[in-house]
């Protein structure tokens, strides 16, 4: 249990660093802005208390905001994402519930489950984030296009990251 918390804390910092040092500097055009750091919220253990979920999402968002100079925007999107996570998990839960000690990852629940679960969360996060950033509805469709394309890229990165760290996960 303690190692699990420790592992998550390390993952938190790792993801923030990857996001702000690596992904932030890759420019793939106006419509592609992947935010891979949300992986942290997606694969927090099932047993995480709800309040801790919100607070860790808030902390993650603040950390990203700090580097992106976008005070509050990422944290708002992350908190929203953490808020809907329990509901989405319930929606996609297997018939006999989640097994104790497992995590919401590809390794435990398979690709189709993970894609739909993470897809919805990432889409919500990006939707909220981009619309706060634009802060008006007059450019709705171009913003919406950005949301869709960026969500797909983020999902891709998130799934790839899971395969990269597959070995570690199975040990834990």
């Amino acid at each position: 249990m303690l190692t699990e918390i420790f592992r998550n804390i390390i993952r938190f910092f790792l993801l923030v660093l990857v996001q702000v040092l690596l992904i932030k500097n890759i420019e793939l055009g106006r419509f592609i802005n992947p935010f891979m750091y949300v992986l942290f919220i997606i694969i927090l253990p099932f047993e995480t208390p709800k309040w801790l979920l919100l607070f860790s999402a808030f902390a993650l968002g603040i950390a990203i905001d700090y580097f992106y100079d976008t005070a509050g925007m990422h944290s708002a999107a992350c908190v929203l994402m953490a808020f809907v996570r329990p509901g989405i998990l319930k929606l996609f839960s297997p018939r006999d519930g989640y097994e104790f000690g497992t995590q919401p990852t590809v390794q435990y629940l398979g690709i189709p489950w993970f894609l739909s679960y993470a897809g919805i969360l990432i889409f919500l996060h990006h939707f909220f984030l981009f619309f706060i950033e634009v802060f008006r509805f007059s450019e709705f469709f171009s913003t919406f296009l950005r949301v869709i394309i960026s969500s797909v890229f983020t999902l891709l990165l998130v799934v790839m990251a899971q395969y990269l760290f597959q070995g570690k996960k199975e040990q834990g």
Binding site: K50, W51, L54, F55, F58, G61, D65, T70, A71, G72, M73, S75, A76, V79, L80, A82, F83, P86, I132, F135, R136
Partner: peptide, 29 residues
Amino acid sequence: HSFFALFLILESVCMYLVVQNNNFQRASF
């Protein structure tokens, strides 16, 4: 409803930060 209340509080904090610290959002708000 502590979960929802906490969500609201945190989200309001975020929104406050957004409006306070980003010139464009503040101006349009």
